[in-house]
């Protein structure tokens, strides 16, 4: 098999205050895959995400991105390859205008001038926000801000996009619009969420993160229909939702 885009081997991590969040995570994601990471609050999902581009370094174990170890010397390249869309778009959009926010990443890669403009507009086109390029981000709706946040990552032309709770706080229309955009993207995608219907809609494969370890993985449909597994890890489908009818 080819080199996985993401390759985590027995990753363990504790925060400086002593709280241990990850207890040996093994995870492989291959090119073109769409994987949902499911788990209850406090399972270590966000901690896991922060390991994927070296913001946190594992206390034990290794993380590789397309074969490249995530270590200090490789951080610049790793962060180009792995794009993370954080949960709160207000954390991700910190510049004065949509254009500056989308340009922030490529500028850090040394891209300037016409090439920068081209990439910024291409990324905004992909999320349907090109008309808002000169608006200040704080005057956009929440759904629009989340889409711009996705563009700030797409513009880096990453090998994998990681989304932390992409559907949180979105109204149903914005939720569907974002799903349409994500479905249309030709990238490897990993999505951390407890929105199980969204996971089923967008990701054929799912892994369950529980108490800091991967407790199960397989087809998303199989996992969502395994009642014993679901109950053991505090995962619940919304009332009235039937995975078989999707």
């Amino acid at each position: 098999m080819s080199t996985p885009v993401l390759d985590l081997q027995s990753v363990a991590f504790a925060y400086p205050d002593g709280h241990q969040a990850l207890f040996g995570v093994d995870l492989h994601v291959h090119r073109g895959e769409r994987v949902a990471v499911l788990g209850p609050n406090g399972a270590g999902k966000t901690t896991l995400v922060l390991h994927l581009n070296g913001i946190l370094a594992p206390g034990r174990g290794t993380v590789r991105v397309s074969g490249l170890p995530v270590v200090k010397e490789n951080l610049a390249e790793v962060r180009r390859r792995v794009g993370i869309v954080f949960q709160d778009p207000d954390d991700q959009l910190f510049m004065g205008s949509v254009r500056d926010d989308v340009a922030f990443g490529p500028r850090n890669l040394g891209i300037r001038g016409a090439e920068l403009d081209r990439r910024v507009m291409a990324a905004l086109d992909m999320v349907g926000m090109a008309d808002f390029v000169d608006r200040p981000p704080h005057h956009l709706s929440f759904g629009q801000r989340r889409r711009v946040a996705v563009a700030t990552v797409l513009v880096m032309e990453p090998e994998i996009i990681v989304l932390d709770e992409p559907s949180s706080n979105l109204d149903p229309a914005s939720r569907r619009e974002l799903a349409d955009i994500l479905t249309g993207l030709d990238v490897t995608l990993m999505m951390v969420t407890h929105d199980l219907p969204y996971a089923l809609q967008l990701c054929p494969r799912a892994v369950v993160l529980s108490d800091g370890v991967i407790a199960a993985q397989g087809r998303t449909l199989d996992i969502l229909t395994d009642d014993a597994l679901m109950a053991a890890h505090r995962l619940e489908l919304p009332y009235g939702f039937d995975p078989h009818r999707c």
Partner: peptide, 16 residues
């Protein structure tokens, strides 16, 4: 905490 999250979002896009 927001300041720290913004900083994370910055370094995730190559800020040094």
């Amino acid at each position: 905490e927001r300041g720290e999250r913004v900083h994370l979002a910055m370094i995730a896009r190559g800020y040094d």
